[in-house]
Each structure stands twice: as C-alpha cells, then as structure tokens.
Write a protein that binds this DNA or RNA. Structure first.
Lengths: 143, 143
DNA sequence: GAAAAGAATACAACCCAGTTGCATTCCACA
DNA sequence: TGTGGAATGCAACTGGGTTGTATTCTTTTC
C-alpha cells in the first residue's frame, strides 16, 4: 500500500495522519499476522512505547484496528479489514502458537450461532485456540 | 461438601491435604463462578498471594482446576468437574461481564467441531464472550 | 521423644504488559 | 512570525503474575 493511500485512509477515518500514525498503520498492514505492543516496539525503534500505545488506542476508537487477547493474556492488534469486522457478527477465531508465541487469524473458520442463556447480552467475542502452528510442528517433527 | 470429602479428594489426586490446600479447594467449591487470583486473595486473607498461587499451580498440574483468561487477560481458576473436563473435547465457553467484572460458565453451550487449517494442531481452547450479565442488564434497564 | 530431612509457607522482591502525568516538541492557523 | 492546541517522549506507576529465600511445619528415622 502506498503512503498516499495510508494517509487518505487515516483521514477518511477521522484521524490526522501524523508520521507516527502512518508508521504504525503501515507496519500493521505489512504484517500478515496480528501484532502485540512489544512486537510493534521491536519493529518501530524510533517510537516510544507510550506513543505506540496511544496511536493504537486511537486506532481502536476509530475502528481502524481491533484487539483480542492471545493465549498469554497479551493484547494483539489487528487491522479491521472491512467496515463491519469489528461487529460481533463477523468476529473470527485466532490461533496462538505456544511454541513460537505468534498469533494467527483463522479467517476461514466461521463462528457458529451461539445461543446464550436468558439475560446475557454479548458485546464481543474472543475465541482463541492454543496449540502449535504448521512451521513449529514441522520443526518439532524433524527433531 | 464435607472437609473429609475434600481431604479424600485431594489424596485421590495425589496432593497432600494441607490446611491451605483444603481452604483453597473449599473456596473454589463454594463459589458458583470461576475465580481469579485476586478474588481468592480477598477471600482468603490468612493466606499469602504466593501461597495461593502455588496451590493453584499445583492444582492445575494435578488437574484439580483448569484455567482460562477472562476478557481482561486475567487468569481465572475453575474446578474440573469431571475426569475429562480438561480435555479439548469438552472445553466450554465462558462469559465475562464487563459491568461487574465477573466470569460465568456457559456449560450449556457446546463448542462445535472446529476444522483447523492444514498443519495447525490444537492443544486447548479459550472461548470467551464479553458483554453484560443478567443481573447487570436488569440494573442498567432500571436506570 | 528428639534430631534430621524434606515439604509447605510467608515475606519480599521482582518481571513485564499496560497505562498515565507531565514537560517538550510539533504544527496549523491567525 | 507568534500562539494555542495536538502529538510525542520520557519517566514513573499499576497490577497480575512469578520467584528466591528464610522460616515454619511435618514426617521420618533412630
């Protein structure tokens, strides 16, 4: 994605496109997997942790990213890919690899209708499967 | 549940039934909901946090309790109700109330078969629905 | 029944992800 | 070009979880 596109996208979302915000959005876009705060810290050595955090918080408010907890209880950030992705209806499942500590999107697994007990009202869901990813399974098998 | 039953249960699980361990197990048994470390801290003022933690760790190893993260990324402890509850096959969904910060078991909602992508191997699952519980919804409606 | 060995516990300190206060810098607009 | 508000960096804090270690308790052995 071009710098111009990123700028335009931020503006469309009502966010002033500062250098840092462009940087964070670009990094998230270029990553094929969700990232946590420390992932971004390691990637963006020019930015302070608190600045990254505030950008991510803003992005969340403007529904540019959404979050979920991986298997360790650590927040992961992921770009919203459509206007509706943040809604309950099309939330998706994440996979957390206990070997390499990375999170993956399981876009292809649909979450079935869940019939909650009387009185419970759902706002969001967080479905995480923990295990080992293909790469790590391969490595483990070779040993 | 009687003290004797608790003692016997611990012994059956290969755990020496010390006063603290009996206390923790009793507290968990008497709670109708999963508890986190600080819940137990507040309840068991005679016990140190680290002691509770070590008892819970031991209970986990002996499959007396299992854990899951609630919506805040905080570990919750819950008694294993059968010999198989800790397996992937009969894991269940939890509900986290964002209003009162309590976790609930949704025993009655079965988790459907999940077809993972090639190469991924699941060890455990953690499905949490966030929202508001019946009690809080009632309160909110009255306002 | 006392001493020795080992397990359980309390206390204190630490780790780390997340968060906040505040001073400084940047930038748009007058 | 000066000014006000937004954005940022730095430092410090919070809270859940965890660990090292000294002390206490329990069990074993003689």
């Amino acid at each position: 994605m071009e710098q111009n596109d990123i700028t335009a996208y931020l503006e469309r979302k009502g966010v002033k496109p500062t250098a840092n915000r462009i940087l964070v959005l670009k990094t998230l876009k270029e990553s094929d997997r969700p990232m946590c705060l420390s992932d971004l810290e390691n990637e963006l050595i020019t930015m302070d942790k608190s600045s990254i955090f505030r950008v991510l918080t803003l992005f969340q408010e403007q529904e540019i990213v959404h979050t979920f907890e991986d298997g360790r209880g650590i927040l992961n950030y992921e770009l919203c890919t459509s206007t509706t992705i943040c809604n309950l209806s099309d939330a998706h499942i994440h996979f957390y690899c206990e070997s390499c500590q990375k999170s993956f999107c399981m876009d292809n697994i649909a979450i079935p209708d869940l019939q909650l007990q009387e009185g419970f009202i759902a706002h969001s869901i967080s479905f995480v499967i923990k295990g080992t990813c293909p790469k790590c399974n391969k490595k483990l098998n070779q040993q």
